[in-house]
Design a protein around this nucleic acid. Structure first.
Length: 474
RNA sequence: GGCGCGGUACCCAAGUGGCAAGGGAGAGGUCUGCAAAACCUCGAUUCGCCGGUUCGAAUCCGGCCCGCGCCUCCA
Protein backbone atom coordinates (compact mmCIF):
# COMPACT_ATOMS: atom_id res chain seq x y z
CA UNK A 1 0.00 0.00 0.00
CA UNK A 2 1.44 3.32 -1.06
CA UNK A 3 0.95 6.27 1.24
CA UNK A 4 1.65 9.92 0.47
CA UNK A 5 1.60 13.00 2.65
CA UNK A 6 -1.17 15.12 1.16
CA UNK A 7 -0.81 18.86 1.72
CA UNK A 8 -4.59 19.14 1.41
CA UNK A 9 -5.21 17.13 4.59
CA UNK A 10 -1.81 17.62 6.21
CA UNK A 11 -1.64 13.88 6.72
CA UNK A 12 -0.39 10.72 5.12
CA UNK A 13 -3.11 9.06 3.08
CA UNK A 14 -3.41 5.81 1.23
CA UNK A 15 -2.83 6.42 -2.47
CA UNK A 16 -5.51 5.29 -4.92
CA UNK A 17 -5.52 6.66 -8.47
CA UNK A 18 -8.77 7.77 -10.06
CA UNK A 19 -8.34 5.19 -12.82
CA UNK A 20 -6.91 1.92 -11.56
CA UNK A 21 -3.53 1.23 -13.05
CA UNK A 22 -2.86 4.73 -14.33
CA UNK A 23 -1.63 7.81 -12.49
CA UNK A 24 -1.92 11.31 -13.93
CA UNK A 25 0.57 13.81 -12.56
CA UNK A 26 1.10 17.52 -13.06
CA UNK A 27 4.47 18.84 -11.98
CA UNK A 28 5.25 22.52 -11.77
CA UNK A 29 8.06 23.27 -14.18
CA UNK A 30 10.52 26.10 -14.60
CA UNK A 31 9.96 29.74 -15.30
CA UNK A 32 12.57 30.10 -18.02
CA UNK A 33 14.06 33.47 -17.10
CA UNK A 34 17.47 32.26 -15.88
CA UNK A 35 19.71 29.22 -15.62
CA UNK A 36 18.12 26.60 -13.38
CA UNK A 37 19.82 26.19 -10.00
CA UNK A 38 20.26 23.07 -7.88
CA UNK A 39 17.22 23.96 -5.79
CA UNK A 40 15.07 23.80 -8.90
CA UNK A 41 16.55 20.43 -9.69
CA UNK A 42 15.79 19.14 -6.25
CA UNK A 43 12.13 19.51 -7.12
CA UNK A 44 12.53 17.87 -10.52
CA UNK A 45 14.54 14.99 -9.08
CA UNK A 46 11.89 14.47 -6.40
CA UNK A 47 9.19 14.40 -9.07
CA UNK A 48 11.24 11.99 -11.15
CA UNK A 49 11.67 9.73 -8.12
CA UNK A 50 7.93 9.79 -7.56
CA UNK A 51 7.14 8.91 -11.17
CA UNK A 52 9.79 6.21 -11.27
CA UNK A 53 8.48 4.66 -8.08
CA UNK A 54 4.91 4.68 -9.37
CA UNK A 55 6.08 2.81 -12.47
CA UNK A 56 8.15 0.41 -10.34
CA UNK A 57 4.92 -0.24 -8.45
CA UNK A 58 3.19 -1.25 -11.66
CA UNK A 59 1.32 1.92 -12.56
CA UNK A 60 1.27 3.54 -15.94
CA UNK A 61 1.96 7.23 -15.61
CA UNK A 62 1.17 10.37 -17.53
CA UNK A 63 3.24 13.36 -16.51
CA UNK A 64 2.87 16.96 -17.59
CA UNK A 65 5.43 19.64 -16.79
CA UNK A 66 4.74 23.21 -17.79
CA UNK A 67 7.26 25.70 -19.08
CA UNK A 68 6.37 29.20 -17.95
CA UNK A 69 7.68 31.34 -20.77
CA UNK A 70 5.64 34.48 -20.19
CA UNK A 71 5.53 36.26 -16.83
CA UNK A 72 6.95 39.40 -15.22
CA UNK A 73 10.50 38.07 -15.05
CA UNK A 74 10.74 36.72 -18.58
CA UNK A 75 9.24 39.93 -19.91
CA UNK A 76 11.63 42.04 -17.88
CA UNK A 77 14.58 39.94 -19.04
CA UNK A 78 13.61 40.10 -22.69
CA UNK A 79 13.21 43.88 -22.52
CA UNK A 80 16.52 44.34 -20.76
CA UNK A 81 18.29 42.29 -23.43
CA UNK A 82 16.34 43.87 -26.28
CA UNK A 83 15.20 40.55 -27.73
CA UNK A 84 11.87 38.85 -28.20
CA UNK A 85 10.37 36.78 -25.42
CA UNK A 86 11.00 33.62 -27.41
CA UNK A 87 14.64 34.49 -28.12
CA UNK A 88 15.18 35.34 -24.49
CA UNK A 89 13.67 32.19 -23.02
CA UNK A 90 15.06 29.66 -25.50
CA UNK A 91 18.56 29.26 -24.01
CA UNK A 92 17.05 28.72 -20.57
CA UNK A 93 14.70 26.09 -21.95
CA UNK A 94 17.70 24.32 -23.42
CA UNK A 95 19.65 24.59 -20.16
CA UNK A 96 16.67 23.12 -18.35
CA UNK A 97 16.47 20.11 -20.66
CA UNK A 98 20.19 19.48 -20.61
CA UNK A 99 20.06 19.51 -16.81
CA UNK A 100 17.30 16.91 -16.85
CA UNK A 101 19.46 14.67 -19.01
CA UNK A 102 22.51 15.11 -16.80
CA UNK A 103 20.57 14.10 -13.72
CA UNK A 104 18.92 11.15 -15.44
CA UNK A 105 15.48 12.67 -15.01
CA UNK A 106 13.10 10.85 -17.34
CA UNK A 107 11.30 13.21 -19.69
CA UNK A 108 7.67 14.01 -18.92
CA UNK A 109 5.03 13.07 -21.49
CA UNK A 110 4.18 16.71 -22.21
CA UNK A 111 6.05 19.99 -21.76
CA UNK A 112 3.41 22.56 -22.63
CA UNK A 113 4.47 26.19 -22.92
CA UNK A 114 2.29 28.96 -21.60
CA UNK A 115 2.68 31.01 -24.79
CA UNK A 116 1.30 28.13 -26.83
CA UNK A 117 -1.86 27.75 -24.74
CA UNK A 118 -3.35 31.22 -24.75
CA UNK A 119 -6.67 30.08 -26.33
CA UNK A 120 -7.14 27.43 -23.63
CA UNK A 121 -6.55 30.02 -20.93
CA UNK A 122 -8.91 32.47 -22.58
CA UNK A 123 -11.66 29.84 -22.67
CA UNK A 124 -11.43 29.32 -18.92
CA UNK A 125 -11.27 33.04 -18.14
CA UNK A 126 -14.28 33.63 -20.35
CA UNK A 127 -16.15 30.90 -18.52
CA UNK A 128 -15.24 32.39 -15.17
CA UNK A 129 -16.52 35.79 -16.34
CA UNK A 130 -19.78 34.16 -17.48
CA UNK A 131 -20.19 32.49 -14.10
CA UNK A 132 -19.66 35.80 -12.36
CA UNK A 133 -16.62 34.54 -10.49
CA UNK A 134 -14.29 36.88 -12.35
CA UNK A 135 -14.63 40.58 -13.10
CA UNK A 136 -13.06 43.17 -15.36
CA UNK A 137 -11.30 46.24 -14.16
CA UNK A 138 -9.25 48.68 -16.23
CA UNK A 139 -8.69 46.15 -18.98
CA UNK A 140 -7.54 43.40 -16.62
CA UNK A 141 -9.55 40.47 -15.34
CA UNK A 142 -9.48 39.29 -11.73
CA UNK A 143 -10.71 36.25 -9.86
CA UNK A 144 -13.00 37.14 -6.98
CA UNK A 145 -11.91 35.14 -4.00
CA UNK A 146 -15.10 35.71 -2.07
CA UNK A 147 -17.00 33.78 -4.76
CA UNK A 148 -15.00 30.67 -3.95
CA UNK A 149 -15.76 29.65 -0.35
CA UNK A 150 -13.14 26.89 -0.21
CA UNK A 151 -10.36 29.42 -0.81
CA UNK A 152 -7.49 28.83 1.60
CA UNK A 153 -8.12 25.15 2.14
CA UNK A 154 -4.78 23.99 0.74
CA UNK A 155 -2.55 26.52 2.45
CA UNK A 156 -4.52 26.82 5.65
CA UNK A 157 -4.70 30.54 5.12
CA UNK A 158 -7.78 32.43 6.15
CA UNK A 159 -8.57 34.91 3.35
CA UNK A 160 -9.78 37.42 5.91
CA UNK A 161 -6.31 37.54 7.43
CA UNK A 162 -4.60 38.22 4.14
CA UNK A 163 -4.74 41.97 4.22
CA UNK A 164 -4.00 42.37 7.89
CA UNK A 165 -0.30 41.92 8.31
CA UNK A 166 1.77 44.92 7.65
CA UNK A 167 4.10 43.10 5.36
CA UNK A 168 1.46 41.96 2.94
CA UNK A 169 -0.37 45.25 3.29
CA UNK A 170 2.70 47.12 2.15
CA UNK A 171 3.06 44.94 -0.90
CA UNK A 172 -0.57 45.23 -1.83
CA UNK A 173 -0.40 48.99 -1.77
CA UNK A 174 2.45 48.90 -4.20
CA UNK A 175 0.61 46.66 -6.62
CA UNK A 176 0.07 48.65 -9.76
CA UNK A 177 -3.11 46.90 -10.81
CA UNK A 178 -6.41 48.02 -9.37
CA UNK A 179 -8.65 45.34 -7.96
CA UNK A 180 -11.92 45.30 -6.05
CA UNK A 181 -10.35 43.41 -3.22
CA UNK A 182 -6.72 43.38 -2.39
CA UNK A 183 -6.88 39.62 -2.06
CA UNK A 184 -8.08 38.94 -5.59
CA UNK A 185 -5.59 37.77 -8.16
CA UNK A 186 -5.13 38.50 -11.86
CA UNK A 187 -6.33 36.06 -14.50
CA UNK A 188 -5.57 38.40 -17.38
CA UNK A 189 -3.43 41.52 -17.43
CA UNK A 190 -4.21 44.55 -19.54
CA UNK A 191 -1.69 45.33 -22.30
CA UNK A 192 1.12 47.67 -21.45
CA UNK A 193 3.67 49.54 -23.47
CA UNK A 194 6.60 47.32 -24.36
CA UNK A 195 5.00 44.11 -23.12
CA UNK A 196 3.85 41.18 -25.22
CA UNK A 197 0.12 41.11 -25.77
CA UNK A 198 -2.37 38.76 -27.40
CA UNK A 199 -5.59 39.76 -29.21
CA UNK A 200 -8.30 37.47 -27.82
CA UNK A 201 -12.04 37.08 -27.27
CA UNK A 202 -11.68 38.61 -23.83
CA UNK A 203 -9.69 41.55 -25.18
CA UNK A 204 -5.98 42.25 -25.58
CA UNK A 205 -3.43 41.48 -22.91
CA UNK A 206 -1.45 38.65 -21.43
CA UNK A 207 -2.20 35.86 -18.97
CA UNK A 208 -1.73 36.07 -15.24
CA UNK A 209 0.63 33.57 -13.71
CA UNK A 210 -1.72 30.95 -12.33
CA UNK A 211 -4.12 30.43 -15.19
CA UNK A 212 -1.66 28.57 -17.41
CA UNK A 213 -1.52 25.64 -15.02
CA UNK A 214 -5.30 25.31 -14.84
CA UNK A 215 -5.54 25.46 -18.63
CA UNK A 216 -2.69 23.10 -19.41
CA UNK A 217 -3.38 20.53 -16.71
CA UNK A 218 -7.00 20.15 -17.81
CA UNK A 219 -6.00 19.92 -21.46
CA UNK A 220 -3.56 17.05 -20.97
CA UNK A 221 -4.86 15.36 -17.83
CA UNK A 222 -8.54 16.30 -17.63
CA UNK A 223 -10.26 18.53 -15.08
CA UNK A 224 -9.64 16.00 -12.29
CA UNK A 225 -6.37 14.17 -11.88
CA UNK A 226 -4.31 12.35 -9.27
CA UNK A 227 -1.20 14.16 -8.19
CA UNK A 228 0.09 17.71 -8.39
CA UNK A 229 3.63 18.49 -7.25
CA UNK A 230 5.78 21.52 -6.69
CA UNK A 231 7.94 23.29 -4.15
CA UNK A 232 6.45 24.37 -0.82
CA UNK A 233 6.66 27.98 -1.90
CA UNK A 234 4.02 27.25 -4.52
CA UNK A 235 1.38 26.22 -1.99
CA UNK A 236 0.36 29.81 -1.56
CA UNK A 237 -0.64 31.58 -3.65
CA UNK A 238 0.01 29.61 -6.82
CA UNK A 239 -1.62 26.27 -6.07
CA UNK A 240 -4.33 27.83 -3.96
CA UNK A 241 -5.27 29.97 -6.93
CA UNK A 242 -5.13 27.06 -9.35
CA UNK A 243 -7.64 25.18 -7.22
CA UNK A 244 -9.93 28.20 -7.16
CA UNK A 245 -9.82 28.71 -10.93
CA UNK A 246 -10.12 25.08 -11.92
CA UNK A 247 -12.83 24.10 -9.49
CA UNK A 248 -14.85 27.26 -10.08
CA UNK A 249 -14.71 26.64 -13.82
CA UNK A 250 -15.10 22.85 -14.10
CA UNK A 251 -17.16 22.41 -10.92
CA UNK A 252 -15.28 19.18 -10.24
CA UNK A 253 -12.62 18.27 -7.68
CA UNK A 254 -9.30 19.37 -9.15
CA UNK A 255 -6.47 17.35 -7.63
CA UNK A 256 -6.59 14.37 -5.26
CA UNK A 257 -3.06 14.45 -3.80
CA UNK A 258 -0.86 17.51 -3.44
CA UNK A 259 2.80 16.68 -2.84
CA UNK A 260 5.20 19.50 -2.04
CA UNK A 261 8.91 19.22 -1.66
CA UNK A 262 10.81 21.41 0.72
CA UNK A 263 13.58 23.78 -0.23
CA UNK A 264 17.25 23.17 -0.63
CA UNK A 265 19.48 25.47 1.38
CA UNK A 266 23.22 25.92 1.05
CA UNK A 267 25.40 25.82 4.16
CA UNK A 268 22.27 26.17 6.24
CA UNK A 269 21.03 29.28 4.50
CA UNK A 270 18.68 30.08 1.70
CA UNK A 271 20.43 30.23 -1.63
CA UNK A 272 20.77 33.76 -2.86
CA UNK A 273 22.97 35.38 -5.43
CA UNK A 274 23.77 38.14 -2.97
CA UNK A 275 25.10 35.62 -0.44
CA UNK A 276 27.43 34.01 -2.93
CA UNK A 277 26.03 30.56 -2.16
CA UNK A 278 24.04 30.26 -5.34
CA UNK A 279 24.77 27.23 -7.52
CA UNK A 280 23.41 26.46 -10.92
CA UNK A 281 23.82 22.92 -12.18
CA UNK A 282 26.27 24.27 -14.70
CA UNK A 283 28.45 25.80 -11.95
CA UNK A 284 28.81 22.45 -10.27
CA UNK A 285 29.17 20.15 -13.22
CA UNK A 286 31.16 22.26 -15.64
CA UNK A 287 33.16 24.58 -13.43
CA UNK A 288 33.72 22.28 -10.46
CA UNK A 289 33.70 18.93 -12.20
CA UNK A 290 31.02 17.47 -9.96
CA UNK A 291 29.79 14.04 -10.98
CA UNK A 292 26.08 14.45 -11.81
CA UNK A 293 25.26 11.01 -10.46
CA UNK A 294 26.77 11.97 -7.08
CA UNK A 295 24.63 15.09 -7.15
CA UNK A 296 21.59 13.02 -7.93
CA UNK A 297 22.45 10.67 -5.07
CA UNK A 298 22.61 13.69 -2.80
CA UNK A 299 19.32 15.15 -4.04
CA UNK A 300 17.50 11.85 -3.90
CA UNK A 301 18.90 10.72 -0.57
CA UNK A 302 17.00 12.96 1.80
CA UNK A 303 13.26 12.78 2.29
CA UNK A 304 11.54 15.26 0.01
CA UNK A 305 9.61 17.00 2.78
CA UNK A 306 12.72 17.90 4.74
CA UNK A 307 14.88 20.92 4.17
CA UNK A 308 17.93 19.67 2.31
CA UNK A 309 21.20 21.27 3.30
CA UNK A 310 23.69 21.33 0.47
CA UNK A 311 27.34 21.45 1.45
CA UNK A 312 30.37 20.25 -0.44
CA UNK A 313 30.99 17.79 2.38
CA UNK A 314 27.53 16.27 2.10
CA UNK A 315 28.03 15.98 -1.64
CA UNK A 316 31.21 14.01 -0.99
CA UNK A 317 29.41 11.78 1.46
CA UNK A 318 26.77 11.05 -1.15
CA UNK A 319 29.48 10.27 -3.66
CA UNK A 320 31.08 7.86 -1.18
CA UNK A 321 27.78 6.12 -0.49
CA UNK A 322 27.19 5.83 -4.22
CA UNK A 323 30.68 4.45 -4.67
CA UNK A 324 29.85 1.61 -2.32
CA UNK A 325 26.93 0.63 -4.55
CA UNK A 326 29.01 0.99 -7.69
CA UNK A 327 31.81 -1.15 -6.23
CA UNK A 328 29.29 -3.86 -5.44
CA UNK A 329 28.00 -3.79 -9.01
CA UNK A 330 31.58 -3.82 -10.20
CA UNK A 331 32.29 -7.01 -8.24
CA UNK A 332 29.22 -8.68 -9.68
CA UNK A 333 30.10 -7.68 -13.22
CA UNK A 334 33.83 -8.34 -13.20
CA UNK A 335 34.50 -11.28 -10.94
CA UNK A 336 34.62 -14.84 -12.20
CA UNK A 337 31.84 -16.79 -10.51
CA UNK A 338 31.64 -20.57 -10.26
CA UNK A 339 29.14 -22.10 -12.66
CA UNK A 340 27.53 -24.23 -9.96
CA UNK A 341 23.99 -23.21 -9.03
CA UNK A 342 23.69 -21.64 -5.62
CA UNK A 343 20.95 -20.00 -3.58
CA UNK A 344 22.76 -18.53 -0.60
CA UNK A 345 21.57 -14.98 -1.26
CA UNK A 346 18.00 -15.53 -2.42
CA UNK A 347 16.59 -14.71 1.00
CA UNK A 348 18.75 -11.61 1.11
CA UNK A 349 17.34 -10.39 -2.17
CA UNK A 350 13.75 -11.00 -1.11
CA UNK A 351 14.34 -9.23 2.18
CA UNK A 352 16.14 -6.29 0.57
CA UNK A 353 13.43 -5.85 -2.02
CA UNK A 354 10.76 -5.83 0.67
CA UNK A 355 12.64 -3.27 2.76
CA UNK A 356 13.17 -1.10 -0.28
CA UNK A 357 9.56 -1.27 -1.40
CA UNK A 358 8.09 -0.71 2.04
CA UNK A 359 10.36 2.26 2.61
CA UNK A 360 9.37 3.88 -0.66
CA UNK A 361 5.70 3.10 -0.13
CA UNK A 362 5.85 5.09 3.09
CA UNK A 363 5.72 8.52 1.48
CA UNK A 364 8.96 7.92 -0.46
CA UNK A 365 11.10 7.28 2.60
CA UNK A 366 14.35 6.85 0.69
CA UNK A 367 16.56 6.54 3.77
CA UNK A 368 14.58 3.57 5.00
CA UNK A 369 14.47 2.10 1.50
CA UNK A 370 18.21 2.41 1.02
CA UNK A 371 18.77 0.36 4.16
CA UNK A 372 17.51 -2.61 2.18
CA UNK A 373 20.12 -2.12 -0.49
CA UNK A 374 23.03 -1.46 1.86
CA UNK A 375 22.16 -4.39 4.11
CA UNK A 376 22.15 -6.62 1.08
CA UNK A 377 25.55 -5.35 -0.02
CA UNK A 378 27.02 -5.87 3.43
CA UNK A 379 25.74 -9.43 3.64
CA UNK A 380 26.38 -10.46 0.04
CA UNK A 381 29.98 -9.26 -0.14
CA UNK A 382 31.33 -11.94 2.27
CA UNK A 383 29.40 -14.58 0.35
CA UNK A 384 31.04 -13.42 -2.86
CA UNK A 385 34.48 -13.52 -1.30
CA UNK A 386 33.79 -16.94 0.16
CA UNK A 387 32.86 -18.17 -3.34
CA UNK A 388 29.40 -19.13 -2.13
CA UNK A 389 27.76 -17.24 -5.00
CA UNK A 390 27.33 -18.91 -8.37
CA UNK A 391 26.93 -17.30 -11.76
CA UNK A 392 23.14 -17.64 -11.67
CA UNK A 393 22.95 -15.85 -8.35
CA UNK A 394 25.40 -13.11 -9.26
CA UNK A 395 23.04 -12.28 -12.08
CA UNK A 396 20.07 -12.19 -9.74
CA UNK A 397 21.90 -9.85 -7.39
CA UNK A 398 22.79 -7.62 -10.29
CA UNK A 399 19.21 -7.66 -11.51
CA UNK A 400 18.07 -6.56 -8.08
CA UNK A 401 20.48 -3.62 -7.95
CA UNK A 402 19.43 -2.48 -11.40
CA UNK A 403 15.76 -2.87 -10.49
CA UNK A 404 16.31 -0.58 -7.52
CA UNK A 405 18.26 1.76 -9.75
CA UNK A 406 15.29 2.02 -12.08
CA UNK A 407 13.84 4.06 -9.21
CA UNK A 408 16.92 5.80 -7.83
CA UNK A 409 18.72 6.27 -11.16
CA UNK A 410 22.10 6.91 -9.57
CA UNK A 411 24.30 4.32 -11.26
CA UNK A 412 26.31 5.42 -14.25
CA UNK A 413 24.95 4.41 -17.59
CA UNK A 414 27.00 1.87 -19.48
CA UNK A 415 28.46 4.26 -22.01
CA UNK A 416 30.09 6.20 -19.16
CA UNK A 417 32.26 3.18 -18.49
CA UNK A 418 34.17 3.18 -21.76
CA UNK A 419 37.77 4.36 -21.80
CA UNK A 420 40.03 5.41 -24.64
CA UNK A 421 42.45 3.06 -26.43
CA UNK A 422 45.21 5.28 -25.15
CA UNK A 423 44.36 4.57 -21.52
CA UNK A 424 43.80 0.92 -22.28
CA UNK A 425 47.31 0.71 -23.73
CA UNK A 426 48.65 2.30 -20.58
CA UNK A 427 46.95 -0.33 -18.45
CA UNK A 428 48.62 -3.06 -20.51
CA UNK A 429 51.95 -1.32 -20.26
CA UNK A 430 51.65 -1.28 -16.49
CA UNK A 431 50.81 -4.97 -16.49
CA UNK A 432 54.03 -5.68 -18.33
CA UNK A 433 55.98 -3.53 -15.88
CA UNK A 434 54.38 -5.32 -12.98
CA UNK A 435 55.12 -8.75 -14.40
CA UNK A 436 58.78 -7.81 -14.70
CA UNK A 437 58.59 -6.53 -11.11
CA UNK A 438 59.41 -2.98 -12.16
CA UNK A 439 57.40 -1.48 -9.31
CA UNK A 440 58.54 2.09 -9.90
CA UNK A 441 57.26 2.11 -13.47
CA UNK A 442 54.11 0.26 -12.48
CA UNK A 443 53.30 2.80 -9.77
CA UNK A 444 54.04 5.72 -12.05
CA UNK A 445 51.68 4.38 -14.70
CA UNK A 446 49.01 3.74 -12.13
CA UNK A 447 49.33 7.33 -10.90
CA UNK A 448 48.98 8.62 -14.43
CA UNK A 449 45.89 6.53 -14.98
CA UNK A 450 44.44 7.76 -11.70
CA UNK A 451 44.86 11.33 -12.89
CA UNK A 452 42.66 10.37 -15.82
CA UNK A 453 40.03 8.92 -13.51
CA UNK A 454 40.99 5.28 -14.00
CA UNK A 455 41.45 3.22 -10.84
CA UNK A 456 43.28 -0.10 -11.08
CA UNK A 457 42.75 -3.12 -8.89
CA UNK A 458 45.14 -6.06 -8.88
CA UNK A 459 43.43 -9.37 -8.21
CA UNK A 460 44.42 -12.99 -8.39
CA UNK A 461 42.66 -13.18 -11.75
CA UNK A 462 44.61 -10.22 -13.14
CA UNK A 463 44.22 -6.47 -13.23
CA UNK A 464 40.86 -4.79 -13.58
CA UNK A 465 39.94 -1.15 -13.82
CA UNK A 466 37.08 1.22 -13.07
CA UNK A 467 36.20 4.84 -13.68
CA UNK A 468 35.96 7.23 -10.78
CA UNK A 469 34.86 10.78 -11.28
CA UNK A 470 35.71 13.64 -9.05
CA UNK A 471 33.10 14.94 -6.66
CA UNK A 472 34.18 18.52 -7.01
CA UNK A 473 35.45 19.40 -3.57
CA UNK A 474 38.81 20.46 -4.93
C1' G B 1 1.85 38.45 13.49
C1' G B 2 0.09 33.81 10.58
C1' C B 3 1.38 28.97 8.40
C1' G B 4 4.97 25.07 8.20
C1' C B 5 9.57 22.10 8.80
C1' G B 6 13.36 20.54 11.91
C1' G B 7 16.94 19.64 16.56
C1' U B 8 19.07 11.57 17.17
C1' A B 9 27.16 9.90 17.39
C1' C B 10 32.46 13.77 14.40
C1' C B 11 29.05 14.52 9.64
C1' C B 12 24.45 12.89 6.90
C1' A B 13 20.19 10.26 8.45
C1' A B 14 15.96 6.25 9.63
C1' G B 15 13.15 5.18 13.72
C1' U B 16 6.07 7.86 16.48
C1' G B 17 5.34 3.08 23.27
C1' G B 18 9.31 -2.56 24.12
C1' C B 19 17.37 -3.76 23.88
C1' A B 20 18.94 3.36 19.08
C1' A B 21 18.59 1.18 11.17
C1' G B 22 21.81 2.58 7.35
C1' G B 23 25.72 5.56 4.95
C1' G B 24 30.13 8.66 5.37
C1' A B 25 34.46 9.94 8.16
C1' G B 26 37.85 7.89 12.06
C1' A B 27 40.82 3.99 14.93
C1' G B 28 42.73 -1.09 15.02
C1' G B 29 43.15 -5.73 12.30
C1' U B 30 42.89 -9.56 7.88
C1' C B 31 44.30 -9.69 2.72
C1' U B 32 48.15 -7.33 -0.64
C1' G B 33 54.93 -6.03 -3.94
C1' C B 34 52.51 -1.34 -2.74
C1' A B 35 47.65 0.11 -3.46
C1' A B 36 42.42 -0.50 -4.33
C1' A B 37 38.19 -3.23 -3.13
C1' A B 38 36.24 -6.45 0.46
C1' C B 39 35.78 -8.44 5.33
C1' C B 40 36.25 -8.36 10.94
C1' U B 41 36.45 -5.32 15.44
C1' C B 42 35.62 -0.51 17.97
C1' G B 43 32.24 3.66 18.22
C1' A B 44 25.29 7.36 21.14
C1' U B 45 24.23 3.79 28.97
C1' U B 46 21.36 7.92 25.05
C1' C B 47 17.79 11.03 21.12
C1' G B 48 17.74 20.16 22.22
C1' C B 49 16.17 21.34 27.71
C1' C B 50 12.68 20.72 31.99
C1' G B 51 8.51 18.43 33.97
C1' G B 52 4.40 14.71 33.48
C1' U B 53 1.78 9.93 31.84
C1' U B 54 3.39 4.66 31.72
C1' C B 55 5.84 -1.59 34.07
C1' G B 56 8.44 0.76 29.97
C1' A B 57 9.28 7.21 26.30
C1' A B 58 13.69 9.42 20.97
C1' U B 59 8.47 8.11 20.30
C1' C B 60 2.56 10.28 24.11
C1' C B 61 1.13 15.08 27.04
C1' G B 62 2.56 20.17 28.95
C1' G B 63 6.12 24.05 29.11
C1' C B 64 10.67 26.16 27.37
C1' C B 65 15.15 26.97 24.20
C1' C B 66 17.41 26.96 19.39
C1' G B 67 17.80 26.66 13.78
C1' C B 68 15.36 27.13 9.08
C1' G B 69 11.55 28.05 5.30
C1' C B 70 7.03 30.33 3.29
C1' C B 71 3.32 34.31 3.72
C1' U B 72 0.97 37.99 -4.24
C1' C B 73 4.32 35.93 -9.39
C1' C B 74 10.83 31.74 -5.95
C1' A B 75 11.14 24.75 -6.86
Amino acid sequence: MIRFHNTLSGREEEFQPLDPGEVRVYTCGPTVYDLPHIGNFRAYVFEDLLLRFLRYSGFKTVQVMNLTDVDDKTIRGARASGVSLREYTEPFVRAFFSGLALLRIRPADHYPRATEHIPEMVAIIKGLLDKGVAYRKDGSIYFSIEKFPAYGRLSGINPDDLRITSRIGARLESDEYEKDSARDFALWKAPREGEPSWETDIGPGRPGWHIECSAMSSKYLGPSFDIHCGGVDNIFPHHENEIAQSEAYFEKPFVRYWLHCHHLVVDGEKMAKSKGNFYTLRDLVEARGVDPSALRMFLVGTHYRKVLNFTLESLEQSAAALKRIKDFVYELENRIFPAAKTDASLDLIACAERTFREGMEDDLNVSAALTGLFDLIRKANPLIQGKKIGLNEAKRLLDFVYRVDEVLAVLPERRDLEISDDLRAKIEERERARKSRDWAAADRLRRELLENGVVLEDTKDGVRWKIEKKTGSN
